[in-house]
């Protein structure tokens, strides 16, 4: 049998899925063990047990000075920035994407502009954002928005253009105005694409968030990581990294679930 036609059974699939995770964990454990045996003061690869201990402390114990559990405050601050940034990006991408995809005038006006703007490296203009908006919340949200919106607009306008012309014409023959076509034909078909687009944009959004927090913030997951870097607190950094990864994974999973539940017709088939 050809390799392309062989696939694992269900138990084998589960084992295979776990394999890379186990491999990485084992490699880390061994590496850590070896380094600590050589030098018990080594900070580079803290023992898994120590990371767990640190994690429990970070999640449950308050800060010595303020008594606040910083990890939760960091999480709250970061998630708020992320939500506002991604929310603004999603809404404007939806509006502009649909306009570009539906209206020839908007297409002529904006298509080339968005194409060029999406080529600007967002991190390169971060200093400009700090200069214009100061070091507060606005510049961090702005970086996320500027970083992911152009690509999302391009994605959604392309998706809008992909809607078969026949369907739009059909709506016209039923007497639908441009607004009705937008609200009843295009929007419902674009919303699942919007969710897919957001899922793809979440990666870059986290990147821009952490970059902005690393440079200027008083609170936030990215801020904390770069702060404790000075003390080589690998156990704290690793806890935060795992926590961020978990958050990102859960968001992606939730969006996928939402897409499936909210738009059952996308899964409908004979």
């Amino acid at each position: 049998m050809r390799l392309i036609n062989r696939s694992p059974g269900r138990p084998a699939a589960l084992v295979l899925m776990a394999l890379p995770f186990v491999a990485v964990l084992a490699a880390y454990a061994i590496g850590s063990e070896v380094r600590l045996a050589e030098n018990p003061q080594d900070k580079l690869l803290p023992a898994p047990a120590q990371i767990l201990e640190t994690a429990i402390r970070l999640f449950t114990e308050g800060d010595r000075r303020s008594g606040r559990i910083l990890l939760w405050y960091d999480t709250g601050a970061s998630l708020a920035r992320l939500a506002i940034g991604v929310g603004i990006a999603a809404l404007s991408a939806l509006a502009f994407g649909m306009a570009i995809g539906m209206l020839p005038y908007a297409r002529r006006t904006l298509n080339a502009f968005v194409g060029v703007i999406s080529m600007v490296p967002p991190l390169a203009i971060l200093p400009i954002l700090f200069i214009i908006f100061g070091l507060g919340e606005v510049s961090k949200v702005a970086l996320i928005v500027i970083g992911i919106t152009p690509v999302m607009i391009r994605d959604l306008s392309a998706r809008t253009l992909e809607i078969p012309r026949e369907m739009i014409v059909k709506a016209e023959t039923l007497g639908a105005s441009s607004a009705v076509i937008a609200m009843r034909v295009v929007l419902p078909q674009i919303l699942p694409r919007l969710i897919a687009s957001v899922r793809l944009a979440l990666g870059p959004a986290w990147l821009f968030l952490i970059a902005a927090e690393a440079i200027a913030a008083q609170l936030g997951l990215g801020y904390r990581i770069f702060l404790v870097r000075r003390y080589l607190a690998m156990d704290v950094i690793l806890t935060y990294v795992i926590w961020i990864t978990l958050l990102a994974f859960l968001m992606d999973y939730a969006l996928r679930l939402l897409s499936r539940k909210a738009f059952p017709w996308t899964e409908a088939a004979l």
């Binding site: 078969p164 026949e166 059909k170 709506a171 016209e172 007497g175 419902p188």
Partner: peptide, 20 residues
């Protein structure tokens, strides 16, 4: 100058709305 209610149409495909 544009399609309207006085002309109905059915194409070979894509003539119904998949989300309804």
């Amino acid at each position: 100058v544009e399609p309207g209610r006085e002309r109905g149409v059915v194409f070979q495909r894509y003539s119904v709305f998949p989300h309804m």
